[in-house]
Design a binder for these strands. Structure first.
Lengths: 212, 212
DNA sequence: GTCTGATAATGAACACCGTTCAATAAAACA
DNA sequence: TGTTTTATTGAACGGTGTTCATTATCAGAC
């Protein structure tokens, strides 16, 4: 058969991407195969390759979609919290919740082997999420230099990410949502305590001297 | 052919595991296929299945081997540092270095889909690494309850792990060893500052009140 | 209304993958 | 030497991603 023209290229593209999202979300990463995806949208394998360079390309775009959704949720949470400290804690909470609710999609984002040359729009999406953290950190410690803020945002958020990674892949004996939330909060609040304390001049806070 | 008996079952097992390690280390996870591994040890596919239940089983044992090596390095570093704070920083550094030097093997450890029922020896190996962190944290904040120490160790180490994950998968614009080391140190030292400060009674350190 | 050229869509074909298991060749024993 | 035992094989099966010659249908010309 040929020339059904029920959908434009663009429609086919979106159709496939949405179906891929559903499959991964419901049945996990390994359920996403070319033939299965094609069947899900009522086309055959070949058609997928008219719209995507290959499956890696499709997954990259699916991941961009996931990052967009994550960013949307994060921004929603951030806007409701004027206090930067509470905002960072809320963002961590949102991140943990997102990872739990969309575990397979979320896992795909950082487990998928990236092509050597990423298209520019991809790191931009990552940067947009980090920007929310940097904003809050700047409000919290305005004396810090931009480079320090940048580094701290990456360190802190990698940390939250790491908590999710180990939780989702079952490395803790208690991986319940509340336990993971508690760990993320602990990490963020202790980090922030340290960060604002050392910001006020001393390289190491006075507090430490009393220990030992 | 049959009955060569050049190797015992156990020798075959070790031979395969070592070859698998070399393949993954050199060429990445996707280069590890049954046929390729069999060829590398001078046997055929079928023989692998006499010694391992399947490839997942083989990978699990390979990961255990990697965790053993990591633990060995970590213990070596920990023993040389009597000061618990410096020891934790050194451990983080060792972890980052290990991840960088054995990126593929290290990635396999936490990306490999675990079977539903892990054999008991696996979580034990993970626990052994966490124990090093818990030990140092206990020395650093002896007033904390064991459950708190446990949680803090997991939160902190997940954080260091997260820094490595995002660095190894190229999410930072600067993923050089020194940049990653700096981020891990930042995370650990700020966390520890917060952790020991809040330990002395107050739920939130006095420092915070001055902000805003 | 018919013909024709352009093209959307197909699906068989290819080289791989993990896994199984009947067949076999070599060692061990009688 | 003949027979039994068994370590090892490798073809076979149903999957995978990817390609591309073939085909069925549509749009426009006459």
């Amino acid at each position: 058969m040929a020339r059904r023209s029920e959908h434009t290229r663009e429609q086919l593209h979106d159709l496939a991407l949405k179906a891929a999202g559903r499959i991964v979300a419901r049945e996990g990463i390994s359920a996403l195969t070319a033939r299965r995806l094609a069947a899900a949208i009522g086309y055959t394998v070949g058609s997928l390759y008219l719209v995507f360079r290959n499956l890696d390309d499709l997954i990259l775009q699916l991941n961009a979609q996931t990052l967009d959704e994550l960013h949307g949720q994060a921004r929603g949470v951030a806007e409701k919290q004027p206090d930067p400290r509470k905002r960072l804690l809320a963002l961590a909470g949102a991140y943990v919740r997102f990872a739990g609710e969309h575990r397979h999609l979320w896992r795909l984002v950082y487990e998928h082997r990236q092509p050597a040359r990423l298209p520019a729009w991809y790191p931009e999406r990552v940067a947009r999420i980090f920007a929310l953290i940097e904003g809050a950190l700047t409000e919290l410690a305005p004396a810090r230099r931009p480079a320090e803020i940048r580094q701290a945002a990456r360190a802190l958020w990698s940390g939250v990410h790491g908590v999710c990674v180990l939780a989702m892949t079952g490395r803790f004996d208690d991986s319940s949502e509340t336990a993971v939330q508690a760990m993320a909060s602990l990490l963020v609040s202790n980090f922030l305590d340290g960060f604002v304390a050392t910001a006020r001049g001393a390289r190491r806070p006075a507090a430490r001297r009393r220990v030992k």
